[in-house]
Design a protein around this nucleic acid. Structure first.
Lengths: 198, 198, 198, 198
DNA sequence: AATGAATGAGATTTCATTCAT
DNA sequence: CATGAATGAAATCTCATTCAT
């Protein structure tokens, strides 16, 4: 679905520089701040060059999202391969930097049809992968949790809430919530396995 | 302190009409769409009249938030007074319409200093009220949950995640997550017991 | 030439309050800042009340000017009646507060026909009065100065320049200029007369 | 430091056209009239193009000032190199067209912090240059004048006053003031001597 | 591969002023 | 006396995007 008008190559140095700049702007001031001018300024180039690589602003935002999504995918696979995959996933979910960016894109996607599909598709894929992981790792031990997909939803939900509220300066109950998650994970994944790590 | 900035009276019919219009626009297309023109159009008035009532756009957004917050407060108090307060709260948290608006304001507050404080303050107050409620209702039965504040965080988190993902067309794991919450609530507060609360 | 539409009486308390407020705004931020809203805010009243007393903004500015002009007239007469009238006049010319306001009105009058006539008329009248004074006081001693009207122009010019440059943070040569004026005045009005004062 | 704000090149034809248009508007109706629309209209272009070359209105005003200041500098150097430098300077000070523009900028700078520094800096530099000139030319003959910096202040003051009052239609005492200045200059620098300056 | 120029739309806000009550 | 409501114009500035070179 790449538009024919785009000339800037996806593997060029400038392309990466622009995606970097856009991501930085989004992190600092939100997606609404990612205007042609602002991004160009952050990248140290002229505004029209942005449109040379990304015909529309949505194209640029999508590129930032896709790169972040690929990184998330890699992080999940890395967590999957670690010694304590479930706790690694929880760290992934509650990672401030990455989750803050994810939240920006979710907020953006809510009102930008062009991006919604891509973002939704990726979220579903990530969830499916995680669900598969939980199933394989926890299997019969899921017990009361019932379904691994639910666990994925809940961990993601709590991680996002902590990050967003943190950004707003809200902290009440956060430590308790974290402790609660730890308790659950401890019951799912007996302490013995994880205490060997540190 | 005779008068600061707002000129249009807070109790006038037009004031309410504008807040209605702004809320409608935010619901439809997000906070970024709540521009002077758009809101004026939705309210059927001239753009400059918007600024007669709300000197700055933030003033208008804040008014929408405050009214919504007051409604939320009322809903929480209503839930508190119901027969099954904890489940009523959960319904409150997972109410799509209200939570979607809340999410808009949280996303907005992340990058608008002027609104952040007010929104954070209200969130903290709501959390405190809920924590107090959980403490009183569940008391010794909190058991593994440990702290009531954590429970408030988690229920809010899950409710918001379900609503947001719903808005994006993501549905995987939702039913399982809901079922899991129901299970927890059932163990904390068996439906049979709920009517016994002395 | 009072417009029939004006209803607020010129001797009412509110009238004076508005003129006070407008003068204060002009002193602080210049004539361009003396908008209906700003003045109303400074006076602690509603904007429409400003127009009740002063149908147009020019009417208000003119009122401020006229009151200031009357005060200037009184100051000049007071100087005239003092022991050392010429030096009193020089103090009048180099008085920062009053001159700064005068400069604002001159700058305003340059581009507002409605005010120009009034301001020019008053300036001419003041000059005539001063000229008369110089003639009477210095008479034959004017010598090289030649004409008393020229002395009035020059003292006013230097006073205004010092005040304006002061406002801009320019100070070079000011002390020397002041000393020079003192020297002239000293030659015109022998030291003996003025040294008796202090 | 790749690029800060200005986009339109300073040496382009349009840039000069805009500065011309702005200067013309300021001359005609004062700095307050130099709005985006008005200047665009005077230049025969679309309003948004003004902001392409001058991100803020202050940038445009500053450009007009700087160009005028450069011209003033050139005029002063030209006067300095003339046969009768002091009288040439006096002509410079009492030049209506240039001084009227200078006065506009001084009035503007009084209430615009962003421009004040630049304008003050230039005024101080001009004064220093003139002081140096007077010192060199008049040296021991300064006598009663005392300091050359004071002379610069006074000539500038009188020139500006004459120009401003002229703009307001005030003429009383002007001829006498001019004659007085001529007398002074004549005593400082007899016309016959001026050609002898070794 | 890149850029300078341009544009029309629109955002936010302020303005003076009018008018009915 | 006074005010609340309203309005149309205008000011400043930013936006995404196009296009010719």
């Amino acid at each position: 679905m790449i538009q024919t008008r785009r000339i800037g190559a996806e593997n060029s140095e400038m392309w990466a520089r622009l995606v970097d700049a856009a991501e930085q702007v989004i992190r600092e001031d939100g997606y609404a701040a990612a205007s042609t001018r602002r991004v160009a300024q952050a990248a140290g180039i002229k505004p029209s060059l942005v449109h040379y690589y990304f015909p529309t602003t949505d194209d640029l935002l999508l590129a930032v999202f896709k790169r972040g999504a690929a990184q998330s995918d890699a992080m999940i696979e890395h967590a999957l391969a670690s010694e304590d995959p479930v706790r690694a996933l929880w760290r992934f979910f509650s990672d401030t930097s990455r989750t803050a960016l994810t939240m920006e894109f979710m907020a953006l996607a809510l009102h930008r049809e062009g991006l919604r599909e891509e973002i939704a598709r990726h979220s579903e894929a990530m969830r499916a992968r995680q669900t598969e992981l939980f199933e394989r790792l926890l299997g019969d031990r899921l017990g009361e949790i019932g379904a691994p997909a639910g666990l994925s939803v809940i961990l993601a939900a709590i991680g996002r809430a902590l990050v967003m509220e943190n950004g707003l300066g809200i902290g009440a109950g956060h430590q308790e919530a974290r402790a609660l998650v730890e308790t659950w994970l401890g019951r799912l994944l007996p302490r013995s396995e994880s205490s060997e790590k540190s």
